[in-house]
Simulated assay, not measured.
Amino acid sequence: MDDLDTLEFEMNLLLAFAPFVAFVVVEHLVSVPAGLAAGAILAAALVVRDLVTPGRHVKLLEIGTVLLFGALTVYAFTNDVQWSTAAVRLRVDAGLMLIVLASIAVRKPFTLQYARETVGREHWDSPDFVAINYVISAAWAIAFGALVLADIVMAYVPAVPHSMGVIATVVALVAAVKFTRWYPEQRAATRT
């Protein structure tokens, strides 16, 4: 991928995580059920966008995100849940990690669907292109695993300052973004 392809890939990948950002913001400002609903609505909007935009396809991550937020929203509104912020984030982050791991397990690493929208069809079946996407997807799974661990600590070890969980989350996500940019360039450099 050239620099423009890489940028487009990263932007599309980051947009796929917009429902999680919406969830965090609305959950913090309004309530847990409202945050979950915001995540579900935005996730559904991304699926609709992919259905109606030529050249785009609905992706496993987006379908999983709709199902995750949809199920948690229905549960939150139909049961009198009193989840702490850390407890609900644990459920959301664990669900996200499972979606990413499932994409790898079914041999469709979630980043592959985004990368294919930014490169020519002649690259789609390249063993190197596919391998790069397995590694990048695994890196995101590790980052989400770190989020899950931070959520567990925040939910069950109240003595740990909340800021530590926020720092761990930011570090894990920034590392995943940087790795997503660095790894394809590194692989290209070693091939030449």
Rank of each mutant, 00 (worst) to 15 (best):
L7H: 12
F9S: 03
E10Q: 11
E10F: 07
L15T: 14
A16Y: 01
F17E: 07
F17H: 05
A18T: 11
A18K: 01
P19E: 05
F20T: 07
V26Y: 01
H28Q: 13
H28R: 14
V32G: 00
P33H: 02
A34S: 08
A34E: 11
G35C: 07
A38H: 08
G39S: 07
L42A: 02
L42C: 04
A43T: 06
L46V: 10
L46S: 11
V47P: 02
L51S: 09
V58S: 03
L60H: 10
E62Q: 11
E62K: 00
E62C: 01
G64N: 02
G64K: 01
L67H: 05
L72Y: 14
Y75L: 14
F77T: 13
F77H: 12
N79I: 04
N79W: 09
N79R: 12
W83A: 14
S84N: 14
A87F: 06
R89Y: 02
R91Q: 14
R91F: 10
D93S: 03
A94P: 01
A94E: 06
L96M: 11
M97E: 10
L98W: 06
I99A: 05
V100G: 06
V100H: 02
I104K: 01
A105D: 09
Q113C: 00
R116I: 06
E117C: 12
T118E: 10
R121M: 11
E122H: 10
E122Q: 13
W124R: 09
D128V: 12
F129A: 00
V130F: 10
I132K: 07
V135F: 06
I136C: 03
I136R: 02
A138N: 08
F144N: 14
G145N: 13
G145I: 10
L147R: 09
V148A: 05
A150G: 08
D151Y: 05
